[in-house]
Simulated scan of single mutants.
Amino acid sequence: MSANEIPAPYRVGDASVTKIPEIIADFPAGKLLPGYEPAALPPHRDGSRTLGGDGGHLPLSIHSWLVRVGAMTVLVDSGVGNGKHRASTLFDRLDTPWLDRLAAAGARPDDVTHVLLTHLHTDHVGWNTVPGPDGWVPTFPNARTLMPRLGYELFTAPGGRSRPNHDMFADSVLPVVEAGLAEFVPPEGGEVLSGFTYLPTPGHSRDHMSIIFRAEGREALFAGDVLHHPVQVARPDLSSMFCEAPEEARRSRGRMLDLAAERGLTWFSSHCAGSSAGTVTRDGERFAWSFRGADAPLRSMPSPDRGRGA
C-alpha cells in the first residue's frame, strides 16, 4: 500500500471510521495461539486470503482507527511509531508512512482532538510521540490523550521500570503526560467523551479496556486486543501468546463476543488483517465472524501538502 492509499471509510451513524495501516506480519499459528488446530476450525476468508485453516502462519495487522464525528477527530490507539528502539525486531526502528496515511484520511496531527488508548503496550502507543529537538514530543499537540489509569500506575509504581514494555512508556507515554495532555480512565471505565464509553476487559493486560462507540443510534466496538485473529471467534478459548492472564482474557473475550452478537455491533479489531472490521453472530453454540467491507476498494487521495503539519 502506498502512502496516499487508504481503505475506504466505514459509517457508524453520522461518523466515519477509517483504518490507518502501519505494518502486517505473519506468525506461526501454533505459537501465536497455543492449542490452535486448523482442521477443527471453520474457514474464515477475507477476499482471496484464507485467515485460519491453512495450518501454517496467521497474519496480524498493526493499525489505528480514525473516527470523525461532529467536531471531534478521534484516534483509537496509535500503533508502533517510527525510529523507536524496541526489543522486538518486528517493531524496532520502523520507518513507515503512517503519518502520510493519516493525512490521506483527512487528518493531520494538529487536527486530532482526542487519542483513546485501549492499553499501554508498544504497538498501541507509539505514534503518541515524534522526535523533537531535545527528545520525544507529543505528535498531537491539540489532543487530549485518554489512557487507563491502572496501566499508568503499573509503570510508575516501584519496580515499574522492570516491566515488559517499559521502553515504550518512557518514550511514548511519559512525554504526553509531562506535556499536560493526558487524562486517566478509571478502572471501572465509563463514558469518557460524548459517544465513547470504556469497558474493562482485562486479561491481555491488567489495564486492558475496550471502547463502545455510539453515533445516531448505531454502535461499534473497538475491542483492542480482546482477540488477535478471527479464529478466536470460533474458538474463544484460545488466548494469544501475548496475553498476560489467559483465563481472564478468555472471560473478557466471551463477554465481548456475547455483547457484539446480541447488539449487532460492528467490531473494529486491533490486529485482524484484511478489512480488520467485522460482525459477530451466533452459529449454534459457537460464534461466527463475517468481515465487513472486506472487498472495499482502496481510495487514492492527492499527496498531502508537506508544508503543513507533519
Rank of each mutant, 00 (worst) to 15 (best):
E5P: 01
I6T: 13
R11C: 12
R11L: 12
S16F: 06
V17N: 06
V17D: 01
K19Y: 05
I20A: 07
I20R: 10
I24A: 14
A39N: 13
A39L: 12
R49T: 11
L58M: 11
L60P: 11
S61I: 03
I62N: 10
R68Q: 12
L75T: 08
D77H: 12
G79F: 03
G81D: 13
R86I: 12
A87W: 06
R93I: 02
R93Q: 15
R93D: 12
L94I: 04
L99Y: 11
P109G: 10
H114M: 11
H114F: 04
L120C: 03
V130F: 03
G132M: 04
P148V: 00
Y152K: 05
T156D: 11
P158S: 08
G160K: 11
S162A: 15
S172W: 02
L174Q: 13
L174T: 15
E178G: 07
A182D: 09
T197S: 15
P200G: 09
T201N: 10
D207W: 09
F213W: 01
L221W: 10
V226C: 08
L227F: 13
P236C: 11
S239K: 04
P246K: 06
G254Y: 00
R255K: 07
D258L: 08
W267T: 07
W267Y: 15
H271Y: 01
C272A: 11
S275W: 03
V280N: 10
T281I: 08
R286D: 13
W289N: 05
S303M: 09
R306Q: 14
R306S: 00
G309P: 06
